[in-house]
């Protein structure tokens, strides 16, 4: 549990790594270059995300954190004129394998966006959307998934009496937790979170961080965050990016206590960014 949630505190608490060992290179990124048209957004990135661990991406704005994250579930395919070099594998299989359908990839890799984006449907329908598009019809399964996901996202108590109301009537923070519930409803193997707490108050943030700890038992999580405290609290490993390059990637403890790169040190201590 985080000892403090005050973002202005200078004390950074690092969590000890969990005992359970999984595959070390569950997500493996190799010599990855990425271009938006002529603009090179990522430059020869190589990093491994271990199974059932939390990896945090940190770095100044515009350094390519979201771009890399969105490549893990091929969300960038929607953008015109993109190009990549190198490869990304999940559990040993390339995500660019022509035999792998993007849809099945995205079912295994859930995503929570920075800006909450609920559908103009009821709260219930929002949560079970991923199951519905998979063709699940059974009411009992849907109800069950809805309740578990909402509970995990720490939203159940607030909305259990109005599941059929429009999701657009929720507050900004509630909407974000709803989006998290939606992303985990179909139990993906990997959860990508792009600054999931930027619109939340400290209490909701705390709940979501707790949720991340719980989800780690089953899921592999990659989280982009601008909050050093958050990265330190929730992640096992941290990657620091700068101008499209991976500057340093190591255990969170190492990054925050004893970084090997001067740039990392400078960023963490708030001397630039």
């Amino acid at each position: 549990m985080p000892a403090t949630m005050n973002p202005t505190t200078s004390r950074i608490q690092v969590r000890p790594a969990t005992e359970k060992e999984g595959r070390k290179d569950y997500i493996s990124i190799r010599d990855f270059n990425f271009y938006y048209g002529a603009k090179k957004a990522l430059e020869s990135i190589s990093l491994d995300v271990p199974e059932r661990r939390v990896v945090a991406f940190i770095g100044p704005s515009g350094c390519g954190k979201s771009t890399l994250l969105r490549n893990l579930n091929r969300m960038n395919d929607l953008v015109d004129g993109i190009r990549h070099e190198g490869d990304i594998t999940i559990n040993g299989r390339s995500i660019y394998d022509p035999g792998l359908e993007v849809i099945s990839l995205r079912r295994r890799v859930g995503m929570v966006f920075q800006k909450s984006n609920p559908f103009p449907k009821s709260i219930y329908e929002n949560v079970v959307y991923a199951l519905r598009v998979m063709g699940v019809r059974d009411r009992a399964i849907l109800d069950e998934a809805c309740e578990t996901s909402l509970r995990k996202a720490a939203l159940w108590d607030e909305v259990k009496d109005r599941l059929q109301d429009s999701a657009l009537g929720l507050s900004g923070g509630q909407m974000q937790r709803l989006c998290i519930a939606r992303a985990i409803a179909n139990r993906p193997e990997i959860l990508l979170m792009d600054e999931p707490c930027s619109a939340l108050d400290p209490i909701a943030t705390g709940k979501i961080e707790e949720l991340i700890h719980e989800l780690k038992e089953q899921f592999t999580i990659v989280i982009v965050t601008h909050s050093m405290q958050q990265a330190a609290r929730v992640s096992d490993r941290t990657a620091f990016f700068y101008l499209g390059k991976l500057i340093e990637y190591d255990t969170t403890e190492k990054i925050f206590m004893n970084p090997s790169q001067a740039q990392t040190e400078a960023y963490i201590s708030g001397r630039f960014g």
């Binding site: 579930n73 969300m75 929607l78 849809i103 099945s104 995205r106 079912r107 859930g110 995503m111 966006f113 800006k115 984006n117 609920p118 559908f119 103009p120 449907k121 959307y129 991923a130 519905r132 598009v133 998979m134 989006c179 939606r182 992303a183 179909n186």
Partner: peptide, 27 residues
């Protein structure tokens, strides 16, 4: 229709047609 809504649907594993039918058309 906000881009986020489209992305959320695709990220949830919906096909393009499902996104059009369930999200884009109602919105």
């Amino acid at each position: 229709v906000p881009r986020g809504m489209r992305e959320a649907s695709l990220a949830a594993g919906a096909s393009k047609w499902q996104t059009i039918r369930d999200i884009l058309l109602p919105a």
